[in-house]
C-alpha cells in the first residue's frame, strides 16, 4: 500500500534519556527527506537536535513526521538551521483523464511532531520561522504530552514569505495546530487538553466574501500590516522564571489613546504588538504563558523573542537559539 510507504518516508524518532549522569540520545533515526543531526553536547544536562531536510526546504507532497520522547530530568532542544522554506505547490493533475484514472498524490506539505515530556524534563522547540513561498500549502500539527512536572518551551512562527522579492502573503494555505495535553495525577485519570492553538490562513479564491480584494489573497486583510507572527508557549516549573518575567513585561505594556473626544485614536501603529495569556490552570502543577506577537519584519520579532527567552540559557547550559 502506498500509505505505508508514505508513513515511512520522512519520519524520525528521537529519544532523549539519562545515562551515567549524562543526557544522551538513545534513539535518533530518520528517513529521507528528513535528516536529524545532533551536535556534540557542551553540557551534561542538555542535548540539541537539528531538524533538517534535503534541499533546505519542503517540496510539494512532503510528509515529515517526528516523534520525540524526553525522559525524566533531561533537557533537549529541537532546532532548525535556517527558516523552513515551503516551496510552491505542484499543480494537480492537469488533464481530466488523469483525474479520472488515478487519484493524484497530495501536493500539500504536512509536518507533524508528537512529543512526550516526562517529569522534571524540558523540551525546547526553537525553530527558525516557516516561510511559505507563493502558492505553497503548509500544514503543521504538533502535539505535546506533558507528564506532571514537565516543562515546555514552544516557539511557532511564520513570515509573509519572500518579502524582499515582493512576495508577501502569496501562499495558498498555512495551517498550524499546537496541542498541549497534561497527563492526570493518577494512572486512571485521562490526559486533559489545556491548549489547542489552531491557526489557519487559507486563500478562499472563489469566495464572494470579499469581492473588492481582487488579486489579493483573501486572508491578507487579517494579517496586515504585519509580516511576521509568532506564538511562544512557556510552561512548567523549569521555565517559571521566564514565565514570571514575561508576565511582568506584559503588565508593563500600556496602551494610551491620545486625541480628544469620545473616539480616541493613537498616533501610529506599533511595529510590534504582543499579548500574553496565562495558561488555564487545568491539571496539576503546570503553569505557563502563551505569548502572541506580530511584527513588521523578522528582525524585530527576533529581538523580541530573544528578550522573552532570556534566562533559558541558564536552564539549558547553552542557548543555541540566541546565537543565530
Amino acid at each position: 500500500m502506498t500509505t505505508t510507504i508514505q508513513d515511512v518516508q520522512g519520519s524520525g524518532t528521537v529519544h532523549c534519556c539519562r545515562v551515567n549522569c549524562k543526557v544522551t540520545l538513545s534513539t535518533l533515526t530518520y528517513t529521507y527527506p528528513l535528516r536529524l543531526v545532533s551536535p556534540r553536547a557542551h553540557t551534561p544536562n542538555h542535548v540539541s537536535v537539528y531538524v533538517l531536510t534535503y534541499g533546505g526546504g519542503l517540496v510539494s507532497g512532503d510528509r515529515i513526521s517526528l516523534t520525540v520522547k524526553v525522559d525524566e530530568d533531561c533537557a533537549m532542544s529541537l532546532l532548525t538551521q535556517s527558516s523552513t522554506k515551503v516551496f510552491r505547490q505542484r499543480p494537480t493533475a492537469s488533464s481530466l483523464d488523469e483525474i479520472v484514472t488515478q487519484i493524484s498524490p497530495p501536493t500539500n506539505v504536512v509536518q507533524t511532531l508528537s512529543a512526550r515530556i516526562s517529569r522534571n524534563a524540558l523540551l525546547a522547540v526553537l525553530p527558525e520561522p516557516v516561510t511559505c513561498f507563493a502558492d505553497a500549502s503548509y500544514n503543521q500539527r504538533q502535539v505535546f504530552r506533558l507528564e506532571q512536572g514537565a516543562s515546555l518551551v514552544l516557539l511557532d512562527w511564520f513570515t509573509s514569505g519572500r518579502k524582499s522579492r515582493g512576495e508577501a502573503w502569496q501562499f495558498d494555505r498555512y495551517a498550524s495546530v499546537n496541542e498541549i495535553w497534561v497527563e492526570g495525577d493518577a494512572a486512571q485519570s485521562s490526559a486533559k487538553l489545556i491548549l489547542r492553538d489552531a491557526w489557519l490562513l487559507d486563500d478562499e479564491k472563489d469566495s464572494a466574501c470579499n469581492p473588492k480584494t481582487g488579486d489579493q489573497h483573501t486572508y491578507k486583510e487579517r494579517v496586515e500590516p504585519y509580516h511576521c507572527f509568532a506564538n511562544l508557549i512557556l510552561a512548567g516549573h523549569r521555565v517559571s522564571n521566564l514565565v514570571a518575567a514575561a508576565m511582568n513585561a506584559f503588565d508593563k505594556v500600556l496602551i494610551t489613546a491620545s486625541g480628544s473626544g469620545g473616539c480616541a485614536v493613537s498616533s501610529s501603529i506599533q511595529s510590534l504588538i504582543w499579548s500574553a495569556s496565562p495558561l488555564p490552570l487545568a491539571v496539576g502543577d503546570i503553569t505557563g504563558i502563551v505569548i502572541r506577537a506580530a511584527a513588521m519584519d523578522t528582525p524585530i520579532m527576533r529581538t523580541f523573542l530573544n528578550e522573552m527567552l532570556v534566562g533559558l540559557d541558564a536552564e539549558l547550559g547553552e542557548n543555541l537559539f540566541s546565537l543565530i
Binding site: N139, W199, L200, R222, F229, V253, L254, S275, S277, A294
Partner: peptide, 26 residues
C-alpha cells in the same frame, strides 16, 4: 486539514484581531 477528527475543524483565522483583543486589559 491535518486532522479534522480532533477539534471539529475549528480554526482561528484573524491573528491581528486576536492579539489586539489580548491587549484589552493593558
Amino acid at each position: 486539514g491535518v486532522d479534522e477528527e480532533i477539534g471539529r475543524g475549528a480554526w482561528q483565522t484573524a491573528p491581528v484581531v486576536d492579539i489586539l483583543q489580548g491587549l484589552h486589559d493593558r
